[in-house]
Design a protein around this nucleic acid. Sequence first.
DNA 1: AGGGAAAATGTAAACGTTTACATGCCGACG
DNA 2: CGTCGGCATGTAAACGTTTACATTTTCCCT
Lengths: 336, 336
Amino acid sequence: MITIKDVARQAGVSVATVSRVYNDSAAVRPHTRERVQAVALELGYSPHGAARSLITSQTHTLGMLLPDLYGEFFSEVIRGVDQAAQREGYHLLVSSARSDGPSLEAALRSMRGRVDGLIVMSPALDAGTARRSLPQGFPVVMLNCPPSDIGYDSIGIANYEGAVAMTRHLAGLGHTRIAMITGAEGNFDAAERLRGYRAVVRERNLDASPSLELAGDFSEAGGHAAALRLLTLVPRPTAVFAANDGMAVGALSAFREAGLRIPRDLALGGFDDIPLARYLEPALTSVHVPIGVLGEHATACLFAGLRAKEPTESRREVLATTLVVRRSCGAQGGPG
Amino acid sequence: MITIKDVARQAGVSVATVSRVYNDSAAVRPHTRERVQAVALELGYSPHGAARSLITSQTHTLGMLLPDLYGEFFSEVIRGVDQAAQREGYHLLVSSARSDGPSLEAALRSMRGRVDGLIVMSPALDAGTARRSLPQGFPVVMLNCPPSDIGYDSIGIANYEGAVAMTRHLAGLGHTRIAMITGAEGNFDAAERLRGYRAVVRERNLDASPSLELAGDFSEAGGHAAALRLLTLVPRPTAVFAANDGMAVGALSAFREAGLRIPRDLALGGFDDIPLARYLEPALTSVHVPIGVLGEHATACLFAGLRAKEPTESRREVLATTLVVRRSCGAQGGPG
DNA sequence: AGGGAAAATGTAAACGTTTACATGCCGACG
DNA sequence: CGTCGGCATGTAAACGTTTACATTTTCCCT
């Protein structure tokens, strides 16, 4: 492994000079600079990141903590974050951990000295655990987590409002018996969406029977299973709101297998508006979540935290969601 | 920032002992161990990654080099790699760079001392540049790159065979005028797919007019544009093979806008079999690429390289692709 | 040519670990 | 009771940088 010393020796200068060439930290005579660069090129030298981080206590890297199994949604967020980070010359260190306390703490700890800040997308991680496992004042942004009671910045989406919009829309089409396939238990987003649904059920005096709330887990298979249970209800609901598009997809195939025509026999709505949604047959009415923006904002927020000298007041940002009406709810034609 | 020294002082032991507690590298009396752990917990200590890497020259991190703008396909590979890496307790350092020489070299260099090995998915990176920018003997796996002339392991997919299978399938359905929407110029995968198409055109004596090869760029928009150009050809081709599913999606919408019925008026095939493919209307016939496997194998291959003491002979692995027949080619009904 | 300021370069400490080696301690054996 | 061996622990060097400070060189002015 060739180091700065090798370059220095070969070029007949001190290590300090080589370092200065690489950092533009001070004036180096053009002649010297060129010789150093020539030697470095010839030797194939490049600075050792860890050594650099150690002394500068800067890694130029952002950490992302994820659940061990994540779906398309998270992948997209990663991409958004990566793009934003890249623009600032930062790397992304991705780390996934199981969602139990010890795993999470270990994952958090293992980031120490490897990243300058952290984006947490592990819904199971509460701010308390984070607080305990992270150095004091470490820049953190929590994504899609409960509003942080303890002082971390957080970004979420308007789950409640989105669910309200969807449920109202279905109610507005005349449905009074609207089922909901809920998200994973203990998940904040899921809880909020359910809350929105329930609010409208009350507000509009819809059928509020508890059996209309089918337990789901955000997975396609879960949506399929929930749909089958739903079909046994009598009288059958006339509309279904799935807490995410993945489950809506699963439900859709279950309904089709059962010989139902969507939206004629049953109106369907989802949440997230993943790219797939508009390509489904029928195209899926959904609540659009600006995934890219989520990643971008998280990154921006984290950079702000990095650059702030003083630990600033923790902020919460909530991204608006928008209802996207397509054919699956039976509201309108549209082309696809 | 609290360090090993703080823990040592507070616990009344030397830094060596604390280190030993964290590494199980040597026997520590239970009594001592417990005290150290207690103090560490109280102080909220965790070892500094960069310092550790510096002395052990191990980062427990795998690097991934990506193009600056990447699609769903790459995201999925990342996920596969992450999962495999996580199982071994490794992190993933993601770095995207523009596809010009200097950017790539810089990106490669910036990995030095930050990762133990590298997975390269930047189609624009040739082995020579890599060789020049990376320490001698650095473990590298090239994904979807030209077979490495210079000694790096590489993994690819059976592009040629897949394209042959698709083209033969279309020809087998009676089409003699089959158009191809090609992938990005200079891209190895794209070139191979085109080669497969051409081989079958020759083999089966199909219409070989150059105008049947429409230039694309792997993007949905590119597919759309190519499809429009295709529609001006006389006589119109009766089948289209898009070099990836993204372009097939674009083409599909263009055809639909033009009032064509797929597959009745025009048969359509894609490549990659992204999740979307089976949900399209009509469901898209495509060449299935085992994306997850790709990531897994790449990681396994890299780990093998890491563990090998001696630089081993460079290997190339080619993953098989399989034709998935759905409705868009008009071959068979199928449910969706 | 001599002096001095400014510019260029060198020296060495520091970053937070790990680990080879040295040291101290204890019990067992002769 | 002395000595030896093994175990637990401490000491200090090393990893590859950056950077404050010291030193040398350059160059301009008189």
